[in-house]
Amino acid sequence: MIDALDGIDGLRDAASMALTGLGLAFFVAGTLGLVRFPDSFSRLHALTKADNLGLGFLALGLALQADHWGQVLRLALIWGLALIAAGIAAQLVARAALAEAARRRR
């Protein structure tokens, strides 16, 4: 481990590990929220916000290992698409949950 952290490559590996580790921590937090939070809206909050950040850190950590800029751009594209998709899906699920709640009250 100490040998592997030698020089600029070692620094890069260490930064990758730290960033992906941080990303995983966000995923764990988001999953905990998904399992433990009481209603659809707070569960959505946990899932979309924490996981999107987690994916961002994962992408950052992996981008440090990229061989050329194309790979970095692709990782950024994946993160951006996941962000948009998660945001839209959260809106739609929340709307469906609202409609369901209104239907139950009637």
């Binding site: 698409l81 948009i84 998709a85 945001g87 839209i88 809106q91 739609l92």
Partner: peptide, 13 residues
């Protein structure tokens, strides 16, 4: 709405 907006953003990609 959001779905319509999504429907305009994603198809080119």
């Amino acid at each position: 709405g959001v779905l319509e907006g999504f429907g305009r953003v994603l198809p080119p990609l």
